[in-house]
Amino acid sequence: MERIPILKMGRVLLVTIQVDMHDRLALALQDDLTTRIAQSGARGVLIDISSLDVVDSFIGRVLADIAAMSRVLVAETVVVGMQPAVAITLVELGLSLPGVRTALNVERGMELLRAALVEEEEEEYEDAGEEDAGAGE
């Protein structure tokens, strides 16, 4: 069975969907992606759907699910490159993908993820600093 490749770039996993997304493929992607996040400890997932002309309610739900699952595994998901027609269809279907971050293209998506990762690192650093301070007292 064909699979959608998942590329790792630093702490970000990059998924480019270039084929027609059918239901089984979407579920396989969900499986693979969660496995990879857990294995690699990635902190960000970028899904590029710019070549998707058709997104039905099922694929929409899978995208939302992937985002939710990634969040459980502490990774931020950004869906990028959605086409206008697809966006309108999803909204008409009542699926506005709450909880999924979106960006216009891969470049913007990467910026978004990078900013989120930097923020997170700073927080971790601060937390660590506080713990050190606590230990010192």
């Binding site: 959605m82 966006a87 909204v91 506005s96 979106t102 216009l104 998506g109």
Partner: peptide, 8 residues
């Protein structure tokens, strides 16, 4: 909502 899906 549609604009947000496009990242705006």
């Amino acid at each position: 909502a549609a604009a947000r899906l496009m990242g705006a």
